[in-house]
Design a protein around this nucleic acid. Structure first.
Lengths: 107, 107
DNA sequence: TAGTAATATAATTATTTGCTTATTTATAGT
DNA sequence: ACTATAAATAAGCAAATAATTATATTACTA
């Protein structure tokens, strides 16, 4: 696959409102699936499938800890994506620990 | 529309192999439709429709000169897109003036 | 080890998208 | 005015995509 195609594929991943929000959220801190579901107000399988696409595209990595799967950004080799994220206002305010306090998942 | 949605829409536009190539080509120089058709080896209506999307998304501007419509980049207010384009190898080699010499469109 | 919670996968559906073919509009040249 | 060329638009279609619902997997806990 050419470099251009690689970039196009990454941009296609980010060209979705939900996925771009997820990546922006992960810039604040790593999150578990349940918290992303809670923030984006959509179904758990929907988020699960978005996370798989982001993982297959090499944009995030996962780490299972107990019951929970935590996702974090993986953009060391993709500085242009960080430049894109700089353009987006911080999504930090969306992260409220309600679910996590109930679940004891994210500290 | 939120800033995030604006960025997502722009990235969706660029997340297509043909459109990303077109934008990369326009970084080299403005081009008329017939030359883009020739370079990308696809149909004229296909390119026309891609150009309309890029124009509606504010990424390119057009200028008609005689029979020909020339497109050029319009990215002053979108520096993050220039950062993306830096990631892509120059597509200059794709531009060969065969069609334009026959048509007298691009100098 | 039975039950529960978190996540993933499968199957399905509805929408969107990229492309094709056919037609129309716009401009130039005779 | 008539013809030719460039580009845009319209209509139709197949493939891709985002979402939903249902089910399976994994891990903790009592």
């Amino acid at each position: 696959m050419s470099k251009l195609e690689e970039v196009a594929d990454a941009l296609k991943l980010l060209g979705d409102r939900n996925r771009l929000t997820i990546v922006a959220l992960l810039q604040v801190k790593e999150l578990c699936v349940c918290e992303i579901v809670d923030i984006l107000k959509t179904s758990q399988p929907n988020i699960s499938q978005h996370m798989r696409k982001l993982r297959d595209g090499g944009l995030v990595k996962e780490s299972r800890r107990g019951q929970w799967v935590y996702y974090s950004l993986c953009l060391e080799d993709k500085p242009y994506i960080l430049d894109i994220l700089k353009e987006i206002p911080s999504q930090a305010a969306l992260i409220v620990p309600a679910v996590c306090e109930a679940n004891d998942c994210c500290t």
